[in-house]
């Protein structure tokens, strides 16, 4: 195949690994600049888990009084119900942020009209996506860490117990499959008219199943199965088990971590494939920028 037109130049474009990194970095920085200009958005991320955790804690104390800790220990294995709730709520914010920031990304760029401009540029999808992913990762880890610290001060619980390093490993590994899920979900919401409502509901369905306030062992078998097929459930329980006297699903930390690793190995691939499929579907049908 020979070119049927003249070739002049590529303007100022210089394709190199440095400029590829530049794309990722620029996207990352731009995202942070944008969110920082929405007053209070980041602070809300960090405060929300504390508020969420406060509710069941207050409720539990109201119901069980002085027996709260003992009853809770009987039900979950730990009497530290405050930290238990705080971990659940902080993990939840990670899940929510990934859903919104990664899953809703294409849709949001479509709504603002910027997707077309991004797609008309020579930057590779992977480079732009890396920027978006890094942004989501940093923001959700920040929210997680901050919520845990502030929450531990407010509820007066000690974070430095159990195996903190292992807990962090569970958080980091747990985010990887979330990325994949978010993309698959992102593809789904492109087809739905009321995408933001769907995400709103989804985040609470997820919250319900991942057991942010209670052990999933209270579920009947079928619901338990649904909950266990969802990586954030393993992530939450892993963090709890490594910090508190909560049991791992498979008895030991390395089995649970292995399950999470398996999710981490498979789901991003699934997510990325779905993403590419979605992209080509859009380009075939309505075209980038329409929805």
């Amino acid at each position: 195949m020979t070119a049927k037109t003249v070739h002049k130049n590529l303007g100022l474009s210089e394709m190199s690994w440095r400029s590829s990194l530049g794309v990722t970095k620029t996207v990352l920085i731009a995202r942070f600049k944008i969110v920082l200009r929405y007053k209070g958005a980041i602070v809300f991320d960090m405060i929300l888990p504390v508020i969420l955790a406060a509710l069941p804690i207050l409720l539990g104390v109201a119901i069980a009084g002085q027996a709260a800790a003992q009853n809770f220990k009987d039900a979950t294995g730990t009497e530290n119900y405050k930290l238990y709730m705080l971990i659940g709520a902080s993990t939840f914010i990670v899940v929510t942020l990934m859903l919104w920031l990664v899953g809703y990304w294409i849709r949001r760029e479509m709504e603002t009209g910027t997707l077309e401009s991004v797609y008309a540029s020579p930057a590779k999808r992977v480079e732009v996506l890396s920027g978006v992913t890094l942004y989501a990762l940093i923001r959700s880890l920040m929210a997680f860490a901050f919520a845990m610290v502030v929450g531990s001060l407010i509820f007066q619980v000690d974070l430095f117990q159990g195996e903190l390093a292992l807990a962090l490993v569970f958080v980091v590994i747990g985010i990887i499959p979330l990325w994949g899920i978010s993309f698959a979900f992102g593809a789904l919401i492109l087809k739905v008219k009321e995408a933001d409502s769907l995400i709103q509901v989804m985040q609470w369905v997820v919250a319900f199943f991942m057991g942010i306030f209670f052990p999933i062992t209270v579920f009947p078998p079928f619901l338990r199965f649904v909950a266990l097929s969802f990586p954030p459930t393993w992530m939450t329980n892993g963090v709890r088990a490594s910090l508190l006297d909560v049991a791992y699903f498979f008895g030991t930390w390395y089995f649970d971590l292995a399950v999470l690793l398996a999710f981490a190995a498979v789901l991003p691939l699934v997510g990325y494939t779905v993403f590419l499929k979605t992209e080509s579907r859009i380009k075939k049908n309505e075209g980038v920028g329409q929805f």
């Binding site: 210089e14 620029t26 732009v128």
Partner: peptide, 20 residues
């Protein structure tokens, strides 16, 4: 991007065009 300045927008898209 409405939350970025004009200059930031130009810089953003410049990077997407692989301009050093």
């Amino acid at each position: 991007y409405w939350k970025l300045t004009g200059r930031e927008n130009l810089d953003y898209f410049g990077a997407l065009y692989y301009i050093p």
